[in-house]
Design a protein around this nucleic acid. Structure first.
Ligand SMILES: [Mn+2]
Ligand SMILES: [Mn+2]
Ligand SMILES: [Mn+2]
Ligand SMILES: [Mn+2]
Lengths: 231, 231
DNA sequence: ACAGGCTGTTAGGCTAGCCTAAGTCTCAAA
DNA sequence: TTTGAGACTTAGGCTAGCCTAACAGCCTGT
């Protein structure tokens, strides 16, 4: 019986929950999450992160290699995925059932995710028909803690001439989401990549209705797409 | 420009919000809320209350008369009513829209009330048609901070032979609420008070369907009724 | 009028989480 | 191989919110 298996864990605090989510997101492509990346993502000073990492590794939620970074333990990953499920179910529910704009749900969910019970998340998921994606196209982990891992490519890195489906967009920036919605660049839309300007220039795409959009590189890096076969 | 009008208040913490609600409930019949009553209601030690009362009176949310008790200032009352509105709208929403049992909503709302935005409460209230009472019959303050103050009488103190309508029941105890629901003792039900046993004995009532219920004094003190005219 | 019991407050201490300032480590460039 | 910039940690300090132990005020019964 060591520390990681010692019986009933006290409930995680709001802060701890947010740290775990950050580490999950920062390590989703593999590797370590660094102190400064976590600090920036959570808007805290780096020493605050060092301190929290120390505590979290003592409770067995992360693995900390000093001066290298951190990774989630299986236990930490479970907790992170539960939070992400909560967040995305909440976003979906607010959008579908309470008329929220997809640009506004993130901020609200960021608070609510720490206050809702598993039961409530279950009821919401049920009312929605167990959605698989949130309003921004991000996959929703199952109650069992499984999450779909798709191989997506940024629009900025697609081959000119190829066809893709816009799958997922970042949900943190309200104005960006409003702009994307205006442009018709929402998850599920079919895009033909017709050109890309050199020197980190914009990508030009054609939508299903024949209209085109000029998507700057900064934005095009944040639009995750699924390539369409046979093109 | 004094302390109470000094510009943008920092948002209230979870603890502060719960203390304000307690003071509101404990002073709803007038008078002061005492340190020990607050301590018991919030399950904290009396010195914790003393400390918090000091801080809250410094920020102008309560008036503290040492060794006497506390009362809400207008500002504290506004904040308390806002929390009570949130709590009761949440209870109503969970019950009406997500299939929650009326015995379970209180615990969930107690957490959520600190995490929901005014906007979300507004959407929920809207989806419900601006309800005036929560599932336990308690009046819901308006967004403007008005609350209905009805003159209710405990069932235990009604006149034998009189007729009443059950208006409101306490929402804190899950088992009690389950029992009341089983007995058909829910807000809105019409009761004829047909007898009361002496020595703090039970009250016997007849429901609309002709069946009778024997309600022990402890319970009968918690059932708030509105007398029906002309009886 | 006052003693004792109860209630309330003060004193002092703890943890979680944050901060800034001051080291320490790493790694790449010279 | 050395060295310095930048990243990271350690040291020390702060607030909120809780606790227990000790002290103070209040009031009721005598
Ligand atoms: Mn959050
Ligand atoms: Mn999202
Ligand atoms: Mn609460
Ligand atoms: Mn209620």
């Amino acid at each position: 019986m060591n520390a990681t298996t010692r019986s009933p864990q006290p409930p995680l605090t709001r802060s701890v929950e947010d740290y775990l989510k950050s580490v999950f997101h920062l390590t989703s492509q593999g590797g370590f999450a660094t102190t400064s990346d976590i600090a920036e993502m959570l808007s805290v000073a780096p020493p605050s992160v060092s301190g929290m990492m120390k505590r979290l590794s003592e409770t067995g939620l992360i693995e900390h290699v000093p001066y290298r970074g951190v990774q989630l333990t299986p236990q930490g990953r479970r907790a992170a995925l539960q939070m992400i499920r909560r967040h995305r179910i909440l976003e979906s529910y607010l959008t579908s059932k309470l008329g929220y704009d997809w640009g506004d749900v993130h901020v609200e969910a960021e608070q609510l995710e720490h206050a809702v019970s598993e039961k409530l998340i279950g009821r919401m998921a049920d009312a929605l028909g167990e959605p698989r994606y949130d309003p921004h196209g991000a996959p929703i982990p199952t109650a069992a803690g499984e999450i779909e891992e798709a191989e997506l490519v940024r629009l900025a890195e697609t081959k000119v001439g190829s066809s893709v489906v816009l799958q997922e967009v970042g949900d943190e920036n309200t104005e960006r989401l409003h702009y994307l919605a205006e442009q018709g660049l929402t998850p599920g839309v079919h895009l033909a990549v017709i050109d890309r300007q050199p020197f980190n220039g914009p990508t030009i795409v054609r939508l299903g209705d024949g209209t085109t959009r000029v998507v700057g590189q900064e934005l095009a890096l944040l639009l995750l797409c699924r390539p369409v076969d046979g093109e």
